[in-house]
Structures are given as structure tokens and as C-alpha cells.
Design a protein around this nucleic acid. Structure first.
Lengths: 112, 112
DNA sequence: TTATATACATAATTTTATTAGGTATATATA
DNA sequence: TATATATACCTAATAAAATTATGTATATAA
């Protein structure tokens, strides 16, 4: 696990990237997928995740589809057209930001 | 300028990196240096910078040296031994974090 | 003389996350 | 069978970290 401050500000970008690459995902599934993909280095907390998902739905970035699995509820989220646009913007911006940070922190030799 | 959320959590790392690479710097100088190095893409706000510098001094990571320049005051900050250790840790952790984000967001083809 | 740059600082507010707590079903294990 | 763990949702209280606004004051450029 990284020190908590590092993950700040990346939540929306992560959510949008995962949802853009899949048809639909539910909240718990997102936490497990991120945990799996990062080898446990990033573990999203529910207290941050759910309010963010709700906010993104309210903004028209995501839509939901509630499904009953046995007696349990699953709320699937998927990106709207606006969500796809937002996802591209967020990911591109983050890619640019990473380049800036790599340069600023002198993390790798500049190529080209 | 990046959307403000992205910069969150990187402030201490940036400060420590700049101060580790120079003998000493003062607050305003740090803001200008970051602005210059990032082509204006990252502009530290004073409301975030000064309280953070004070906290880092209180933690023994930085020491200060107040200098009169003309009739104006400058408060130079430099890293202590603990600060150098902390700087290395922070920068390494951030480098690792970036690698994780690059993979998670599929930003570059994986090499090796 | 007036705006901008330099240089410090804090207070009120906002944003964003953590921590803690709540509800409930399904499954594995002792 | 009892109990712990995993699945699956959610919110409220709190904390952390930043923005925005404000304040003080000198130096310099227009």
C-alpha cells in the first residue's frame, strides 16, 4: 500500500478507465479489480468509492443498472457518451501530468 | 494548469526533491522554480505551501535560516539528514506509484 | 502613482478521503 | 451448527489537504 496521500485525486480517473474498458462493473468489483491489477498496492476504500460513483452518476458521466443476483443486489455502472469523453480527457491529462512529474522528480532520463 | 485534484498529495515530494538538489531555497523561490520547470503546468499555492513547510520543519525534516535581503525577509529551508532520507523514500515511492498508474491506466506498452 | 513582483503568513472554506458504523446474504471452516 | 469471511450496498463523523481570500510589507516597473 502506498501512503494514502499519493492516491488522492486519482480515484475518478481509475474508475473511468476501468469502466471504459469493460461493458459494466459494480462497485465491489471495481475495488477487487484495482486490488488485483496493482498487486494490492492500491486498495480503494468504500467510503471514497461509493460517494464518488453517486456523484459521477449525478453528473451524467455514469449510468446504473441494478441487478438481482440471487437475493443480493448489484448496481452496475457504465460510462455514458459524456463519460467516454471525460474518461479520455482524464486519462490524457493524467498521462501528461505523469510526464511532468517524471521530469520534475528526475525519475528517468529524457528520451528524444 | 492541471485540474487541481491531480496535484494533491504530491506537494511534499516536490518540495523535498527540489530542496535535496539545492543547498537551500525559500518558499517563494520554490513556487517560481516549480512554475518554471513545469512550464506553468504546476503552480503551487501559498496557502498550501507555507503550512506544509512549517509542518515539515516541525517534523525535523527541514531546517530554516532567516535572512534579511534589503529590508525584506527571506526564510531559507534546507533538508536535514532525516529530510534527505525522507526525500529518497518519498521520491522512490512516487516512482513506484507512477509505474503502477501507468500499468493501471495502460499508458505505455509494458517493456521487459 | 499605480500596478506588478517579491515575500512572508493565516483564516475560512471546500474538497476529498479515511474511519467507523450500519444492513444483509452467501459461503467456507472449525 | 456456529462462526468467520467474503460479497455487496450505503452513510455519517471526522480528518487531511488543498483552495480561496485576506492581510502585511517592500521593491520595482510602467
Amino acid at each position: 500500500m502506498y501512503s494514502s496521500e499519493l492516491i488522492k485525486g486519482t480515484l475518478k480517473t481509475i474508475i473511468l478507465k476501468l469502466l471504459s474498458d469493460s461493458d459494466k462493473m459494480y462497485g465491489y468489483e471495481i475495488t477487487q479489480k484495482v486490488k488485483e491489477l496493482t498487486g494490492g498496492k492500491i486498495q480503494l476504500t468504500e467510503g471514497a468509492l461509493y460517494p464518488t460513483l453517486h456523484a459521477m452518476e449525478a453528473q451524467g458521466i455514469l449510468t446504473t443498472d441494478v441487478v438481482n443476483v440471487g437475493n443480493r443486489i448489484r448496481k452496475y455502472y457504465s460510462v455514458t457518451d459524456l463519460g467516454k469523453k471525460t474518461a479520455n480527457e482524464k486519462v490524457s491529462e493524467y498521462a501528461d501530468f505523469i510526464d511532468t512529474m517524471i521530469f520534475l522528480l528526475d525519475l528517468k532520463p529524457k528520451v528524444g
